[in-house]
């Protein structure tokens, strides 16, 4: 990506990185508190400083490495698919307050710093993947993004918590930005770029597919129980359509009815547009049977 300071593209990428950093940030203060609680008072301050420093350093190093890894063909697609899952997980409501199993109380200074750095590295994998994708291959953007967001997270974590507590829509926006980043990563994948250029309409299908999977926890909350199966049916239908487009390229078959000439091609076209209906009906019937069985089991136990 060409770096043009203060252009819309540059500022947008920076904004995306900062937003992703904020919503996917790990709770470093909690980790440090848990790890350092058994250490003597005089060591605790040193652990806080070196633990924070180590965590920032490892985060910056991982983010820069991710930029180079994403340049390897195939990794952009894998990273994009992982981001879809990360966005979905971000929006899925959490049950209770869980403590991190990565943070065990340490007894030595070196052990405490090591635990903090490892815990941060493990917790930050999704974060660095997302900012690596949003940075469009620019190391400068990553460094700038981290320089802005890390101090906010480390020293202003209470401010971040206040912000997301007052405006939970920031989390939804973070999920949407992650889904958008996943879309741009998948269509930039070198293996697929030529195919997307030859089949431009599939880009829209991919975009809606990504948003329908990533944002499912959000829109499923607003659907009535009768419409809940849409959460599965909509992505499945888009995948069905996409699969025919991929099959048409892989096996050189004609799936466009305007260009179909033989009987087989017309049957294939019919299968593409109507073939999903019996499968959807079967899914709805099986789902209904499960619901009825569960309801009956619940009634029997009462």
């Amino acid at each position: 990506m060409d770096i043009d300071f203060f252009s819309a593209g540059f500022l947008s990428a920076l904004l995306a990185i900062v937003l992703i950093d904020l919503v996917l940030a790990g709770d470093n203060a909690l980790i440090i508190g848990l790890v350092a609680r058994n250490l003597p008072k005089e060591s605790q301050n040193k652990v806080i400083f070196w633990g924070t420093f180590g965590a920032i350093a490892i985060r910056a190093f991982m983010a820069i490495i991710v930029v180079y890894i994403l340049a390897v063909p195939g990794f952009m697609l894998v990273g994009g698919l992982a981001l879809v899952w990360i966005a979905r997980k971000l929006l899925t409501p959490e049950g209770g307050n869980e403590e991190s199993h990565l943070a065990k109380p340490a007894t030595t200074f070196a052990g405490a710093v090591r635990t903090i750095v490892i815990a941060d590295a493990v917790m930050g994998v999704d974060n660095v993947l997302a900012i690596g994708g949003a940075a469009h291959g620019s190391v400068l953007l990553i460094v700038l993004g981290l320089a802005i967001s890390v101090p906010i997270i480390v020293w202003g974590s209470k401010l971040v918590i206040k912000l997301v507590d007052r405006y939970p829509s920031v989390i939804l926006l973070g999920g949407a930005v992650l889904a958008w980043t996943a879309y741009t990563m998948i269509i930039r994948e070198p293996f697929l770029a030529a195919w997307f250029e030859a089949h431009p309409a599939t880009k829209l299908v991919v975009a809606v597919l990504i948003f329908s999977i990533s944002l499912a926890p959000w829109y499923s909350e607003r659907l009535s129980p009768q419409l809940k199966p849409l959460v599965v049916l909509l992505p499945a239908l888009l995948l069905w359509m996409l699969a025919f487009e991929v099959a048409a390229s892989a096996w050189k078959v004609q799936v466009d009815y305007l260009l179909a000439t033989t009987e087989g091609e017309y049957i294939l076209e019919g299968l593409r547009w109507i073939g999903w209906v019996p499968l959807a009906a079967l899914f709805l019937w099986v789902r209904e049977q499960f619901l009825l069985r569960n309801r009956r089991a619940a009634r029997d136990t009462r």
Partner: peptide, 22 residues
């Protein structure tokens, strides 16, 4: 554990979001 999960409202953003924010 994520930082945002320290706020119950943010952890359940899909349920607690305001209509205008949504």
């Amino acid at each position: 554990m994520r930082l945002i999960h320290r706020s119950p409202r943010a952890a359940n953003a899909v349920r607690t979001v305001s209509p205008s924010g949504e």
